[in-house]
Design a protein around this nucleic acid. Structure first.
Lengths: 252, 252
DNA sequence: ATTATGCATTATGAATTCAATCTTGCAATA
DNA sequence: TATTGCAAGATTGAATTCATAATGCATAAT
């Protein structure tokens, strides 16, 4: 597993699959990627999935060895992650993974709810008939997964619906801002993995949302989606604070 | 002016006033700063004020010489600015200052309006009586500046009011997200400097907003502030697209 | 004359090196 | 025995060096 070479040499570097320009997929956009961007993506995943846990100090040397890169791109990536709120940089003391507090997660969901409300309002105005048809298709797909209790698939389609509505807002800034928040929200959801089920209620809310969009009732769609996201947040928070208050510092 | 020393030496670096821990102000938080953070701040100002103009390629070597630093902190700062949308990084081709398009600016104001609406709704619930008193004080101050046609002071207090309402939301994520957008919005406003006056209408809207907040009518306050920000955006856009369509690529 | 190709120059991305700061452990003293 | 001061070690932040990709120009070929 990428033997921890002790630097000093000429052919260091490419220990991992990083760098390769995505072998399989279409060659269309020969977008060259930079190392720091790949590293940032990798670190993001590690933090979301808990491979780098809350409050963990980021050991630069160790991570460099593990990833097969030098410190420069890693440190560049850390700057980006810091501006995304995933790590905090303590001058002369390195980086540490930010802790998810209850109040912080509540704030995240509150803003996400506001952004999705905005997106729904705009989508109700700007979505074409084809877009609504696509949403209906997704809704039906989700209902099937729900009926069959296929949790993972349900979750994926659910996420897809939210992303679609965001995209239908036709506002790039909204999309980017939302994406940034979602990385942090995924962290919280990943933690609260266990019992964050809210299947039935969530399904109903999605149905009502779709109807409001079809009726081009932006105000109603906005409120429905906002409250839906807020309830999701409450469910996640309940798990975080609830039974297993292990890792999660609640910080009243 | 920080003689462009040709590297090689021991006492390079501190050409500029950077680094000093803010001599005057209270010593309370002995917060140490890092070079890349200072550089990022400096670059932000340069971009907002147009010292680095739209579409300008960022010459690393040149800037390093000008700022009296080496490339590493500069490049780290550029990564941060890229994630803030102020520059874009072209792999192997360096950084370039992003261009403000009409659609982009419209999107910025749309999202800012949504965030401020959210803030107003929350502030109406969460603000204490003392906070409202502070807002009244600011409003009166602004009215005085308005009456006296003191443009700069009016503008400053106006900004202060918006920031205060954002803060009264009690939501840190909202505050950070809004701040990130505002950097870009300031860019647009700086460009449209000339005739973005909307004094009288703006004043009236602010008064109504204050009344709604005092009445704890969150929904109304939210809508008022949202529309106020949207109108400001329209004014800025009008100037951008209008008479002097010089620098600003409109990009239909 | 115009376009294509190859070379030289330049600048970027990443690695490595260097210096300053922080941490840790031990010892000395109260 | 606890606390403070000091020194050694470790780690960060920044500078410098190195390798590679991009750009521009000159030359040659059509």
């Amino acid at each position: 597993m990428a033997e921890t070479r002790t630097t000093k040499g000429s052919d260091v570097a490419q220990g991992v699959s990083l760098r390769l320009p995505r072998a399989g997929a279409g060659r269309a956009a020969i977008r060259r990627r930079t190392l720091h961007a790949d590293v940032a993506e990798r670190l993001r995943d590690m933090i979301v999935q808990g491979a780098l846990a809350q409050g963990d100090r980021v050991d630069e040397k160790g991570l460099c060895a593990a990833l097969g890169i030098s410190r420069t791109p890693l440190r560049e990536a850390l700057k980006v992650l810091a501006s995304e709120g995933l790590v905090e940089l303590l001058p002369n003391r390195g980086a540490r993974v930010t802790e998810l507090t209850a109040t912080g997660v509540a704030a995240l969901f509150e803003v996400a709810a506001g952004l999705e409300r905005m997106a729904a309002e705009l989508a109700a105005e700007r979505a074409g008939e084809r877009d609504l048809a696509e949403l209906r298709r997704l809704q039906e797909s989700m209902e099937r997964h729900h009926a069959a209790r296929r949790r993972a698939e349900y979750f994926r389609v659910n996420q897809r619906i939210h992303d679609t509505i965001i995209a239908l807002s036709g506002n790039d800034v909204l999309q980017d801002t939302h994406a940034a928040l979602m990385t942090n929200i995924r962290r919280a959801r990943y933690q609260a993995n266990a019992t964050q089920e809210r299947w039935d209620g969530s399904m109903r809310e999605h149905r009502e949302l779709l109807h409001a969009l079809e009726a081009r009732d932006g105000a109603k769609a906005g409120l429905l989606l906002r409250d839906h996201v807020l309830r999701t947040g409450e469910a996640v928070l309940a798990v975080m604070q609830g039974p297993a208050a292990d890792e999660t510092r609640t910080e009243t």
